[in-house]
Amino acid sequence: MEKFTFTEQQDTRSGFGAGLLELGHSNPQVVALCADLTGSLKMDAFEKAFPERFFQVGIAEANMIGLAAGFTIGGKIPFTGTFANFSTGRVYDQIRQSVAYSGKNVKICASHAGLTLGEDGATHQILEDIGMMKMLPHMTVINTCDFNQTKAATIAIAAHEGPVYLRFGRPKVPIFTPADQVFQIGKANMIKTGQQVSIFATGHLVWKAMKAAEILHEKGIDAEIINIHTIKPLDEAAVIASVRKTGCAVSAEEHQRHGGLGDSIAQVLARHFPAPQEYVAVDDQFGESGTPEELMVKYGLETADIVMAAEKVIARKH
C-alpha cells in the first residue's frame, strides 16, 4: 500500500479560528464568546474583525454558557470558546438546563482536549468530556482530526440547528484531509478500506491509526480505517457495514475508555452485530504533566498501541 502523507503540521484550534473568521464574514448572526482564552482558542482574528460581535466574558464560564443560550433568543448563533475542561465539566449543569434541555442553538467549542495539552497536567487534561456531552439529549458531539477538518466542521455547525459540542486540541498535527472538504455531520469518513479489522478513530488518533495501518500492512494485515469525527449522532450504518465485513473492531480516542467513542461503537455492535472489540483509550486514570508525545506513549495512545490492539482483536475472532 502507499504510505499516507500530509502537507504540513498545524493545530486543530487554528482550524477553528480560521473557520470562525470565515463565518464572521459569511453569517452576520454568528457571535463569539470567550472566557479569557482568546489567543489560545485562536479567536483573536474574529475579535479584531468583528469586535461588535465578540464578547469577552472573563473567567466566568457558567455565565458564558448562560449568555450563549440567551443570545440564541433573537436569532444569534453563539460560539463559546474555552478549554475543553472548562467547556464541559465546569459548566455541565448550565449546558444541561440552559442549552441542551432548552434546545438552544449554541456551539460549544473546546480546545486543549485530552492529554496533548501536555505540561499543564491533569487539572486541565479532560478525558471525560465526550462522555459527558454525548449523554445529553439533543447534543451533537464532534471531534475533528486536523486543521482542515476542524475549519470545515466549524463552518458546518453554524448551519446546523441545535446544540453542538466541537472538540479540538492544542498540538500541531499533520494535515491530511482536503482543504476543500464539505463537512457532513454524522457521516463517517472512510480513509482506507480493509478486510481483517475495522479501526474506528477520532481526533488526534486518526492519523496514528493511519500510521498503524501501514505497519499492519507490513505485517500482512489488511486494516480498514474509518474517521469517526461525529461521535453523536454516530454513523451506525458505517460501523455495522465495516464490522460485518471485517468481523472485529478497534476504537481509538484521546479519552477515557469509559464513556467515549469506544463505548458508542460497542453499543452499536452489541445491538446489531456482536463482535470482538479492543479499546485504545485512557484506562480509568487521570493524566499528568509531560510533553504530549511522552504522555501519548505512557497512556497507551500511540500508533504501536493501535497495532497491538488490532492484532489482539483479530486473534479473538472466532
Binding site: 457558567a62 458564558m64 440567551g70 433568543i73 438546563q97
Partner: peptide, 26 residues
C-alpha cells in the same frame, strides 16, 4: 424561552437575550 429550576442560571440567559436585542437594534 428557557428552562429553569436549577437555580442561578436565569440572569446569564437574560443578559444574553438583552445583548441580542441590542445587536438587533430592538
Amino acid at each position: 424561552r428557557v428552562a429553569s429550576g436549577s437555580l442561578g442560571q436565569g440572569l446569564s440567559v437574560a443578559l444574553g437575550a438583552a445583548q441580542s436585542k441590542k445587536l438587533n437594534n430592538d
